[in-house]
Nucleic acid binder design. Structure first.
Length: 112
DNA sequence: ATGTTGACATTGA
DNA sequence: TTCAATGCCAACA
């Protein structure tokens, strides 16, 4: 019943599910999440799902864009909580303030 | 109801 | 190489 409705909700649900699977001290990108979900081209919508998850228990701070930049830091309680939190997890940052994806990039399904 | 924006990514010119 | 346009899904005005 209302399978369509579930589908709509399913997108967010999948995003949350993947984000919740991100291991400590690791980060992933919107594209990888979207790709794992099945809607590879919907990386933007993933960001929307995270905005909805900003008030959830999901480690949305572990999700960054393809450049490793903390694009959504401004959506947190404070624009500094994201970087501080990642640093607190042992995540290394680049001189540009971007996360070292080369060191902490985690892909959904890889760590499962 | 329609159009625009939004925490992005990819491809084309 | 760099710039611009497009695609995706959902929420907001």
């Amino acid at each position: 019943m209302n399978e369509r409705s579930e589908d709509r909700n399913d997108f967010f649900e999948k995003v949350w599910e993947v984000v919740a699977e991100i291991p400590f001290g690791k980060v992933t990108t919107y594209g990888h999440i979207a790709e794992h979900i099945g809607v590879k081209s919907a990386a933007r919508t993933v960001g929307w799902a995270l905005s909805a998850a900003a008030g959830s228990n999901l480690p949305a701070h572990r999700v960054v864009n393809r450049f490793g930049a903390l694009s959504g830091k401004m959506h947190f309680s404070t624009p500094t909580v994201m970087e501080e939190r990642l640093r607190s997890e042992g995540v290394a940052f680049d001189q540009d303030g971007c996360v070292r994806l080369d060191l902490h990039l985690w892909i959904p399904g890889e760590g499962a």
